[in-house]
Amino acid sequence: MTGTQTAAVAETAAPAAAETTEDGYNFAYLDEQTKRMIRRCILKAVAVPGYQVPFGGREMPLPYGWGTGGMQVTASIIGANDTLKVIDQGADDTTNAVNIRRFFARTADVETTETTGEASIIQTRHRVPEDPMTEDQILVLQVPQPEPLRSLEPREIECRKMHAYKEYGLMQVSLYEDIARFGEIATSYSYPVMVNDRYLMSPTPIPKFDNPKLDSYPALQLYGAGREKRIYAIPPYTKVKSLDFDDHPFQVQQWEENCALCGAEDTFLDEVILDDRGGKMYVCSDSHYCARRRAEGHSGKLSGSAAAAYAAAVGADQPEKGA
């Protein structure tokens, strides 16, 4: 225990001093004991890819469901020399991403960045970056519901048995039902995957567009579910297969249009409503990727000045703005 922590504890009796305790928190908020406990769980998760390791999740100063699992994982692995990038929906400037980045800048005083290549840790909600990651980087995903079987089987005890015995027939039945009813598998995000041919895993609500990236990914993927108190992992270069049928193979989303700002043809696009008469355009959801391409001279159908005005309005115009 550090001296500053003692001070924070001693101040419990003096609430007037509460605002000063902010500086009394340990590096990256969690105490070292807790971080060690979480790191042990992470090691176990890495050793058994896709298996959900229960952990003694702590109450974080951000609400459950807002990334407390990812934050605890990040807090446990981050060091003073790390560079952190935080994205939500693929963008660095969404409120929740800003808020979590602010939290670590404040409690761990680490460098932050918006550039995928510069980050040693990227914490994300709902997206995997478009730019490839490397073996030197770690991707931390925030998980609202770790249990891929939950929608089919609400009982935790039964779900754990199904994983232990590798009884995944029911999951396949749900895909069968989709095809029977809709002619295709009607799951567009949180699309279930088999990890290392053994554990069924929810890749969190990333769009299925991102699923293929998870397979043989060079970076370590860590998944943290705070409310449900589970950690799981996919080690680098692990086989990750999206469930499908031989005659209805897994497919990702495709757009008929390209990014209106940078012209990218192969990224996940967000639909931007332009007016109330059905006018819309599509732009990259990965704000850093889009900005980098534009800096490199790529452009989309939106004219140069309009694109610049739009980018300025949503704060996606500074590819190098960093911490």
């Binding site: 396949q172 069968y176 005659d247």
Partner: peptide, 25 residues
């Protein structure tokens, strides 16, 4: 399984033992 189609009910056992061809199931 009362809310799963008749086909899904019959196919479940096949899928449980590894059948992965929708048409055949």
């Amino acid at each position: 399984r009362m809310s799963i189609s008749a086909g899904g009910n019959v196919g479940e056992r096949l899928m449980a033992v590894g059948a992965r061809h929708y048409g055949e199931i």
